[in-house]
Amino acid sequence: MHEQAQLRLKKDEVEKLGVEAFVVLALDRYRTKVFKEENLLLSKGKGPFAKEKSLVFATALSDPAGHASALYGVSRKCVRWGSWVENHPCWFVIDRKGTLSYAAHPTFATPTSYVTDIDRVLEALTKAAR
């Protein structure tokens, strides 16, 4: 969600590049809908998104058996962060020819990593848009 919030901050730039954005959850449709429509996590804090109902402007996709997640090598199906985690949260960029042009596997070592991740994704999207 934090990464989606960071992407949301760059929404104008993303739209200017004509990017189609997707977020994939290796979960059922209901949980995907919750992710898309409800700001459950950040609404509990005091940050800039605390009062916003939804942060996700990307199309949210339910990948309930984790098939797409496994193809892209991000499946984990592990206990982490006090819960079951289906995927390693990762970014991919596909260019206009359908070639995978960028992949990022963030480490989440610090909160600021989100910001730099999005900057790199935008850089990759700018190249992919050419």
Partner: peptide, 13 residues
């Protein structure tokens, strides 16, 4: 058609 960004989320939060 367009450049595409795909994010794989960890969970529903």
């Amino acid at each position: 058609k367009k450049p595409i960004a795909i994010y794989f989320a960890a969970f529903e939060g």
